[in-house]
Design a protein around this nucleic acid. Structure first.
Lengths: 99, 99
DNA sequence: AATATATTTCTGGTAACATCGAAATATTAT
DNA sequence: ATAATATTTCGATGTTACCAGAAATATATT
């Protein structure tokens, strides 16, 4: 994963509302959670929520699946794990003296 | 670690230049790296770099130590690990069906 | 077709952030 | 004290993010 993309991904998580949204989506598991439910649960206006969701979608942290009138949001573990791996492998290097 | 602070921390890492700075600081190990070295290595004007460093400092991702005229930047593993733990425990929940 | 529900796009105002040169501060050496 | 080096603060400017109401779109039901 390239640094630029990692930074983008971190930035998306780096907003309290979006982090809370992502948190809720992750906790909803494979089935996901409806946008409307998020709206209620987090008490955020629809337009604002939609804006934040598109941010999370844009970096692939979540994806969506429609069922009738309701859109479900599901977390994409792979993207998340790739980001954490970057942080731990590329960033949070070992304690060995660098020589 | 509280969600608000985690978000702040992620936001600081969520900028390409700051992520690159943090990356370089981490790789420098315990000894750290001088601000001037970062400036050269990353080819960023001093004032801009200083601005970004203060962001990383503000959330405790790095700290500084002076030696004569030069300031060394060192990564603070603890803060970083706390953030990753939050993401993995609070966020990136298990795959067990939530019931 | 008309209505109801779910979600997004539009719009515009405000706040926050990024950038960088110039001036200021801190430290050391002479 | 003066000068040299290292880093930060100031100031000005442009860019991007955030917010939320209103209007628009998409889907389903009757």
């Amino acid at each position: 994963m390239k640094l630029e993309l990692v930074a983008k991904t971190l930035k998306e998580l780096g907003h309290p509302t979006r982090l809370a949204v992502y948190h809720a989506v992750v906790r909803a598991g494979r089935q996901g959670v409806a946008v409307g439910s998020l709206q209620q649960k987090l008490n955020v206006p629809g337009s604002t929520l939609s804006h934040h969701l598109s941010g999370l979608l844009s970096v692939g942290l979540i994806s969506q699946r429609r069922e009738g009138r309701t859109l479900f949001c599901v977390a994409d573990d792979e993207r998340f794990n790739a980001m954490v791996s970057f942080l731990q492998n590329e960033c949070c290097a070992d304690e060995e003296p660098n020589q």
